[in-house]
Simulated assay, not measured.
Amino acid sequence: MTEATERFFESLPARAPGVLRSPVSGTIQIALSDGGQTVRWLVHLRPGAIEVSRDRGPADAIWYTSEDLFDRLVTGRAEAISSVLRNESSFSGDVVLFLLFRRFFPDPPGTRDPREVARAQAGRLR
């Protein structure tokens, strides 16, 4: 497992209050494989808080992906929804948890909010 992935999971509890503002709660298991071995993370999401462990347990959703792809996700070089749509990873269970969890991934480098781009364009037209 890469250092970026380890740091990502370690950072989740501190970042949760700013990301988890909806009333959704549940547990997602993330299974990261590197070919012959699978590492699992159990992530309990609730409004404003998150708990992360390496335990196995019941989960409302399971996301299967490679360690390499997950490393690209945590560094902003890939996008979660795109990876599922391209069959690079798979997901089963409560899709709302997947959509909520993906908010923790950084935007790709150079990404700008379209509203900011529109405001800048509108300012130039005046």
Results as ranks from 00 to 15, higher is better:
65 T>R: 07
59 A>E: 04
47 P>R: 13
53 S>N: 06
15 R>H: 07
17 P>I: 07
57 G>T: 08
24 V>A: 13
22 S>E: 13
38 T>I: 13
17 P>M: 09
37 Q>I: 14
67 E>K: 10
27 T>W: 00
34 D>A: 11
41 W>Y: 15
45 L>D: 00
68 D>F: 12
59 A>S: 13
37 Q>G: 07
38 T>G: 03
65 T>H: 05
52 V>G: 02
69 L>W: 03
48 G>I: 10
48 G>W: 06
57 G>V: 09
55 D>A: 15
56 R>Y: 10
57 G>Y: 09
59 A>Q: 05
21 R>F: 02
63 W>A: 11
22 S>L: 08
35 G>E: 04
26 G>M: 02
14 A>Y: 03
10 E>H: 11
60 D>A: 09
23 P>C: 02
20 L>G: 03
40 R>H: 12
70 F>G: 03
67 E>I: 08
15 R>D: 11
66 S>T: 15
28 I>L: 13
36 G>K: 10
52 V>Q: 03
51 E>R: 13
66 S>N: 11
16 A>L: 06
14 A>L: 11
9 F>L: 05
60 D>E: 11
43 V>N: 00
61 A>I: 08
16 A>P: 01
13 P>H: 03
63 W>C: 12
47 P>M: 05
35 G>S: 06
47 P>G: 03
51 E>F: 03
32 L>D: 03
64 Y>A: 11
53 S>I: 08
42 L>Q: 12
31 A>W: 01
57 G>C: 06
33 S>C: 11
27 T>F: 00
51 E>G: 05
41 W>F: 15
53 S>T: 15
36 G>H: 09
45 L>R: 00
65 T>G: 09
46 R>L: 09
30 I>N: 02
38 T>W: 01
44 H>S: 13
45 L>T: 00
59 A>M: 04
20 L>F: 04
18 G>T: 08
54 R>K: 14
57 G>I: 09
61 A>Q: 07
59 A>H: 03
59 A>R: 02
23 P>I: 04
26 G>P: 02
66 S>H: 08
55 D>S: 14
39 V>K: 13
15 R>C: 07
71 D>I: 01
51 E>C: 02
63 W>M: 13
22 S>V: 05
35 G>T: 04
37 Q>K: 14
17 P>R: 06
66 S>K: 09
48 G>Q: 07
39 V>S: 14
26 G>T: 01
22 S>R: 12
42 L>R: 15
45 L>F: 07
41 W>S: 05
52 V>K: 01
70 F>C: 08
21 R>V: 14
39 V>H: 14
17 P>S: 08
26 G>N: 02
54 R>C: 08
49 A>I: 06
21 R>I: 12
40 R>W: 06
56 R>C: 07
32 L>M: 12
66 S>Q: 07
21 R>N: 10
70 F>P: 02
59 A>V: 04
58 P>E: 15
69 L>C: 03
60 D>G: 10
31 A>T: 06
37 Q>W: 13
24 V>H: 10
71 D>M: 05
13 P>A: 10
27 T>M: 02
49 A>G: 12
42 L>S: 07
21 R>Q: 15
41 W>A: 06
19 V>G: 04
10 E>V: 11
50 I>M: 05
19 V>S: 05
13 P>N: 07
53 S>Q: 05
54 R>E: 14
30 I>D: 03
65 T>S: 15
17 P>T: 11
56 R>W: 10
49 A>D: 14
21 R>M: 11
30 I>P: 00
40 R>D: 05
56 R>A: 14
51 E>N: 09
